[in-house]
Amino acid sequence: MQAGFIGLGNLGIAIAENLLMHRQPLYVYNRTAAKAQPLVEKGAVICTSVKELAATCDVVISIVSDDAALRHITEGPEGIAANLKAGGIHVCMSTILPATATSLEIVHQQHGNHYITAPLMGRPDAARARKLNFLVSGDNAALEQVKPLLTEAGGAAIWEFGEAVSAGAAAKLCSNFLVLSSVTAMAEGIQLARQSGIDPAQWLQMLTSTLFSGPVHQGYGAALLKEGHQPAGFSLKLALKDANLIIAQSQNAHAAMPVGKQVQTLLQQAVAEGFGDYDVTSVKDAIRD
Rank of each mutant, 00 (worst) to 15 (best):
Q262T: 12
A223S: 11
K131I: 02
S94G: 06
K261T: 14
A153S: 12
A14D: 07
N252F: 07
N140M: 12
F177Y: 14
Q195M: 11
Q218E: 10
S175P: 00
T56G: 02
S65R: 10
G12P: 07
S235C: 08
P215E: 09
S182H: 09
A185P: 04
A167T: 05
L26N: 00
F275W: 12
P25Q: 03
T151D: 07
S250H: 05
V50C: 02
P25D: 03
L84H: 01
G154I: 06
K172D: 07
Q269Y: 04
V60E: 01
I198K: 05
S182D: 12
D285L: 15
Q230N: 09
A16G: 03
K261I: 08
I190M: 13
C174H: 12
K42Q: 12
Q109P: 03
V40E: 02
S62P: 07
D199M: 12
A3V: 14
A81N: 04
A270I: 08
V59M: 02
A127M: 11
A68T: 14
R71M: 10
Q195S: 15
Q191C: 08
A222C: 06
A101N: 10
L135K: 02
N252H: 15
S196M: 08
N83Q: 08
L211P: 02
P148F: 07
G122K: 08
I198C: 12
T48F: 08
R288T: 14
Q145H: 10
L26G: 00
E152L: 06
G233R: 11
S137W: 03
L150H: 04
L236Y: 03
A193V: 09
N252T: 11
L267P: 04
A270H: 04
R23V: 01
H22D: 12
G228K: 05
